[in-house]
Write a protein that binds this DNA or RNA. Structure first.
Lengths: 121, 121
DNA sequence: ATCATAAGTGAACAAGTGTTCAGTTGTTTA
DNA sequence: TAAACAACTGAACACTTGTTCACTTATGAT
């Protein structure tokens, strides 16, 4: 990229150095940015969106979800792992069943806020 | 997938048909699910996360953002298009500059809620 | 102990994504 | 008018992701 900051020789700068520096100071660190992106990406799939919505309504076991989505349990299991890895869902074991639900209230808030945005489109 | 719903011949069902049907009735339609997933996916990239954060602080032009992220203007322009397509950012033209900002208040709420979730991890 | 079943896993492949490069458009200034 | 520049775009590529298939683990029933 070409350097557009010419403030050393000229007052007029196309890049607003003051604004850029101000934002740069507040910028979240690399690992937080990474986690944010991974979290959003975990939500960025139609199958997983349906799972999150379903789990925002009811606690469900893997085969409930599979039945609901018309998917194989294997596929559901793989997707649940993605959501689990980002702490979007939690589960409790009861015998051979695993009952899943949303991990915390932020997830529902986050999801509902996005729903509101989308429903305004 | 094997059919596990055996309620016609037996009272005991592994799939809780009542819960599944209740969720099925409330399930969002396919196009809403698709938009939700696309919106989350648009946010699911470190570069775009940084852009959204930056724009939550200040209105910025393309070259400000490029300078801030150390990216080419072409790359920034491509990423901004993704965000624009999902109405996550808007822009105003002033001469040859394009000033970008977050599209609406939902985006900031959504982003902040995710930040809170991530910072609890 | 054996069988059935809920859940989870690894490997492999098709499909989708981000970046770069080269080039275009439109505006400003000399 | 010509040159400079902000912004945008299409094509190509390397890389990532979701799904399927075959298999494993672990629990409960016969």
């Amino acid at each position: 990229m070409m350097d557009k900051t010419i403030e050393e020789t000229c007052e007029v700068t196309y890049v607003d150095r003051k604004k850029v520096l101000s934002v740069e100071r507040k910028m979240k660190d690399e690992s937080t940015v990474q986690l944010l992106a991974e979290t959003f990406r975990a939500l960025g799939d139609p199958t997983r969106v349906k799972m999150i919505f379903a789990l925002s309504q009811e606690e469900l076991c893997v085969c409930d979800i599979a039945s609901l989505l018309g998917a194989t349990e294997s596929a559901v299991s793989h997707q649940l792992r993605v959501l689990r890895n980002m702490r979007l869902v939690k589960y409790r074991k009861e015998g051979k069943m695993a009952y899943y639900s949303l991990d915390d209230v932020h997830i529902k808030n986050l999801f509902d806020e996005c729903l509101r945005h989308v429903e305004e489109m």
